[in-house]
Write a protein that binds this DNA or RNA. Structure first.
Length: 690
RNA sequence: GCCACCGUAGCUCAGUGGUAGAGCACACCCUUGGUAAGGGUGAGGUCGUGGGUUCAAUCCCCAUUGGUGGCUCCA
């Protein structure tokens, strides 16, 4: 006799097992009609799930009462169900397609499929697929679940001959399932069905709005050695307006894309002839980078760092010792050989294979375009005898590194082949690790705070015990990982521990941000390393007059300027705070009669170190404002004859519709100068009304 | 690297088997105008690159290069 507790605390009693749908109906016809699924003791289930014991029950509807956003559980059900409908539609249109796996995601869903050889789907087929889906939805067939004991279910799958579904079932067994479940879209045995753990909406007709979005290739189980699958993405919502709102939101987000804004605002350029993933910083972007560098540079001096400069290449031996060459060869540009070596090899008729082997064996020397800065800094540390008294030694450099990323992975400024890290390596005693980590983390926090970035997460990257890609002994790894955990805890923000995310030489604390299309990027990073000091035999003389090995901390609070500024452009949607804005103030003259005063104001601004320009074109003031607005300039100063007489400027602040009125030019200059000096995240000038 | 799509003027994009067009931007002229586009004139492209089909290719086919979305990878 189930007693059912509803979310509002009220209790309903039944004298027989009931389904969640029946409970909904007992509450009200409207609710029953709106119900898409149920949450039983916190578990999302079908509406048709039988309830036999006392439970807490919530009915899932498209929108929770009073909520403005669609219900996340409802979207999950809709998308999961829509994935089935899409799979059925595609199988109708493309006979022989095998289904693999089709989960709902945060904003959409996909279905991985194997198309018969020679047959492929193209984006031109989307309309046909959508039309077929619309038919299935119009038929409003119920999602009907049926379960089978494991052995029987496996036998069924074997007879159907899909290795993918069989594998899914086997993984379900590993996860502890004792039964297998299918969902038929309609009648079991008669209509389309799919091995699936559910849950689903009651019937296909409940999928209010959907869209097939894109095509991609994927690997079975994410393993590039296994089958190459076709992944079809789609999304679904309860209503058309919600879908439209989502699509509009996606369009809006694209306008903030750093690649779009980078072009519009002339921040950077990528040129085919220079090379993929190689950023050319144009003057506007260079200003932002330089300002950030000045900002962090001031902090570094405060924190006792020493600036160093080192070259962008180094001999192969250096990277063999560090482990980069043997462990990460695939991610580096191939080594550079000297002329004489090339001639000698050519005379010997050396093949590429020979060359690779002989380089590995150390027979042939060459230079590597550096993938990291640490080996050079290590050599600076090792260039002189070190006493415990001078530790920690903190060497910093805005060091450019080159990595050979796969062509399909490169894009914009967030994933590039050459980038500059705000790098530093701290060589310290073991007892200094905690404090040094604190110092590094405080730098990262300062950056995020100054720029008003709050939407980031913290990841502690640990080694994957099953992988061979890490160097060093496990004992040191354990110590280093514990140091990272402790440091992350002290940050006072939530963090996740993620095995397999460590650097090859040590664990790390990463600060991760999302871009406008939802992709995550690692920005700042702090890493603890016992391994490289050992590989290079680094030393210091301790207070006991014995030789000791220092511990290294690698840290880059921005990560790389390329990636960071890519994210920063999106964070500000191109509207940078005054201290970062490439053009901080533009003076707009009303007519030729106020040109002299305009030039005077410009001179005052420049004298104060403000990046300012003067628009004395024959355009009307409306046109000048419109043009200036497109450059997202923080302040526009309109100067006319009235202003000239009063030695004043009429201030417009970016994002404020009406002008702020006139103020003495000298006062504006003083205000903007202090706003810039403070690195204020918001526009604060000209707020005083005359 | 894999799959799909895309590449036309500085930018955003239209277009056609018979060697191309718009808006913005740019240059010049008129206008001297007080807060989100005043008017006119003009210049600017071997339609990503290389092959092929064709009497004829920017358009069709192949290759290549670059971009976009995803997969994989990411020290």
């Amino acid at each position: 006799m189930p007693r059912i507790t509803l979310p509002d605390g009220s209790v309903k009693e039944f004298d027989r097992p009931v389904t969640a749908g029946e409970v909904a109906a007992s509450i009200g016809a409207g609710l029953a009609k709106a119900a898409l699924g149920a949450k039983i003791d916190g578990q999302l289930t079908d509406l048709s799930t039988r309830i036999e014991k006392d439970v807490k029950l919530g009915i899932v509807t498209a929108k929770a009462k009073g909520a403005t956003a669609p219900d996340a559980d409802a979207l999950y059900l809709l998308r999961h169900s829509c994935a089935h409908v899409m799979a059925e539609a595609i199988q109708r249109l493309f006979p022989g397609v095998q289904l693999v796996y089709g989960p709902p995601l945060e904003n959409n869903f996909y279905y991985d499929m194997l198309f018969p050889t020679g047959k492929a789907m193209s984006t031109e087929d989307f309309a046909k697929v959508e039309a077929e889906m619309a038919k299935i939805i119009a038929e409003d067939r119920p999602f009907t679940r049926y379960d089978m004991p494991m052995s029987e279910g496996l036998a069924k799958l074997k007879s159907e001959g899909s290795k993918f579904k069989l594998d899914n079932a086997e993984r379900a067994i590993e996860a502890g399932s004792t039964e297998l479940s299918w969902y038929a879209t309609g009648q079991p045995g008669k209509d389309w069905e799919d091995l699936c753990r559910g849950p689903h909406v009651p019937s296909t007709g409940r999928i209010g709005a959907f869209k097939v979005l894109s095509l991609a290739s994927s690997y079975w189980k994410g393993d590039e050695k296994l089958d190459r699958l076709t992944r079809v993405y789609g999304t679904a919502f309860a209503t058309k307006p919600e879908l439209d709102a989502y699509m509009t939101q996606v369009e809006e987000a694209k306008k903030r894309d750093h690649r779009i804004l980078g072009k519009q605002l002339r921040l950077f350029h990528i040129d085919e002839m220079v090379g993929q993933g190689l950023i050319l910083w144009t003057p506007n972007g260079a200003v932002i980078r330089q300002e950030l560098q000045n900002f962090i540079g001031e902090e570094l001096r405060r924190q006792g760092y020493h600036q160093v400069f080192t070259p962008n290449i180094g001999k192969l031996d250096l990277y063999k010792t560090s482990g980069h060459f043997p462990y990460y060869q695939d991610s580096q540009y191939p080594p550079i050989l000297e002329h004489d070596t090339m001639k000698m090899l050519a005379n010997e008729g050396c093949t590429c294979g020979d060359l690779a082997n002989r380089m590995k064996a150390g027979d042939i020397d060459g230079y590597l375009l550096r993938p990291m800065n640490c080996p050079h800094h290590i050599k600076i540390y090792a260039s002189q005898q070190r006493s415990y008294r001078e530790l920690p030694v903190r060497l910093c450099e805005f060091g450019t590194v080159y990595r050979w990323e796969q062509s399909g992975e490169i894009g914009g400024m967030t994933r590039v082949r050459g980038f500059t890290q705000d790098d530093a390596h701290l060589f310290c005693r073991e007892d200094q690790i905690a404090e040094e980590l604190q110092g590094c983390l405080s730098l990262v926090k300062l950056i995020f705070k100054t720029l008003g970035m709050t939407d980031y997460r913290v990841r502690v990257g640990l080694r994957d015990p099953d992988s061979a890609k890490y160097v060093g002994d496990p004992g040191n790894w354990d110590k280093a990982e514990q140091a990272c955990r402790d440091a992350a805890k002290s940050l006072g923000v939530p963090f996740s521990e993620e095995p397999g995310e460590a650097a090859f030489y040590g664990p790390k604390i990463d600060f991760v941000m999302k871009d406008v299309i939802g992709r995550s990027w690692q920005l700042g990073t702090v890493q603890v390393d016992y391994n490289l000091p050992k590989r290079f035999g680094l030393e210091y003389i301790g207070s006991d007059n014995q030789v000791h090995q220092p511990v290294m901390i690698h840290r880059a609070p921005f990560g790389s300027f390329e990636r960071f500024i890519g994210c920063l452009i999106e964070h500000f949607a191109g509207a940078f705070p005054t201290w970062l804005a490439p053009e901080q103030v533009r003076v707009l003259t009303i007519s030729e009669k106020s040109e002299a005063w305009g030039r005077e104001v410009l001179a005052m601004l420049k004298a104060a170190g403000v990046r300012a320009t003067l628009d004395e074109s024959p355009e009307r003031i409306q046109g000048k404002i419109k043009a200036a607005t497109e450059w997202k300039i923080p302040y526009l100063l309109v100067v006319g004859e009235r202003d000239a007489e009063a030695k004043a400027v009429s201030v417009r602040a970016r994002g404020v519709q009406e002008n702020l009125g006139a103020m003495p030019a000298a006062e504006f200059v003083a205000q903007v100068k202090s706003e810039i000096a403070e690195r204020s995240a918001t526009l604060a000038c000209g707020t005083r009304q005359p």
